[in-house]
Design a protein around this nucleic acid. Structure first.
Length: 270
DNA sequence: TTCGTCCTGGTA
DNA sequence: TACCAGGACGAA
């Protein structure tokens, strides 16, 4: 499930391939994955990629003619790259044919991913991007604490809310709470100044580790060439419900917060 | 603020 | 065969 580290890993991989490259033709095999633009494919033809940007979990490809292609991998999406003569991947949903016989693939078994083409100056009016908080990787401790102080609710839900800070998903929310020693079921109004600061450092540390490990791969995520990330080997709590805590040996607990599975250690996290 | 919906492969 | 995974959005 691509979160900030997986999207950042993808961005770093596609950037050298796409910069200056031109879309030749675009095949949309799943029309429900494109939004707002019935001429999605024809509008992209002939456009050249000028810059690649990540905002939270979104990838933005800024193109010539003042257009921006917005990609969100959602749950199971990933980008792949292959030569036009190579065998197709199993779940290819959109194919972006590049001028040099390479094909950028939007691969997505569950088809929840989205690709949207907008005028560049309209990007920030796109609902999710307009209300998005500062990037979780670069938000300062002061801003993180100030924003957290204003929020009321269960900590886990606030961390997942992209209008608070952008980029944290279910895996990195649970992992950050463990590193901070804070129970994700706590209400935000009970957090102390020290805890808010510790949590900020834990979020940064957790995301940076994810990027260093090229992302977390369970069934879906891999890099451009199908190579999985390594971060799943280093997780403390996510996916380890019922197993012993790696720090103290206590059996890890699980609850559902905002419809999301949440795992924590009742001993290490208060 | 909470909950249903989208969507389909993998697993029990 | 039924259920689970979950990011973002819209409705209640």
């Amino acid at each position: 499930m691509p979160e900030l580290p997986e999207v950042e890993t993808t961005k770093r991989a596609i950037e050298p391939v796409l910069l200056g490259n031109t879309f030749h033709t675009v095949e949309v095999l799943r029309p429900n994955m494109t939004l707002f633009n019935k001429q999605f494919a024809s509008s992209l033809a002939g456009k050249t990629v000028r810059t690649v940007e990540r905002k939270g979990k979104y990838l933005l490809l800024h193109l010539t003619d003042s257009l921006t292609l917005i990609l969100h991998l959602k749950m199971s999406g990933r980008l792949g790259l292959r030569h036009i003569d190579d065998a197709a991947l199993t779940y290819e949903r959109i194919r972006f044919h590049l001028h040099d016989n390479q094909v950028l693939i939007f691969n997505d078994p569950r088809t929840l991913g989205r690709a949207t083409l907008l005028p560049t100056d309209a990007v920030m009016s796109y609902a999710a991007l307009g209300s998005m908080g500062p990037d979780a990787l670069t938000v300062t401790g002061q801003e993180f604490s100030d924003r957290l102080k204003k929020r009321r609710g269960i900590l886990k839900s606030v961390l997942l809310n992209q209008s608070f800070v952008a980029g944290i998903g279910n895996i990195y929310a649970d992992e950050s709470c463990f590193v901070a020693g804070i129970n994700p079921n706590r209400r935000t109004e009970t957090l102390t100044d020290v805890e808010r600061s510790v949590l900020h450092k834990a979020v940064i540390e957790t995301l940076e580790k994810g990027i260093r490990n090229m992302g977390t791969s369970f069934s879906d995520f891999s890099d451009l060439f199908g190579k999985p990330g390594q971060n799943q080997k280093t997780l403390f709590v996510y996916g380890r419900n019922g197993k012993p805590c790696l720090a103290c040996g206590t059996v890890l607990s699980r609850s559902v917060v905002g419809q999301r599975g949440t795992v924590w250690c009742g001993e290490c996290q208060i």
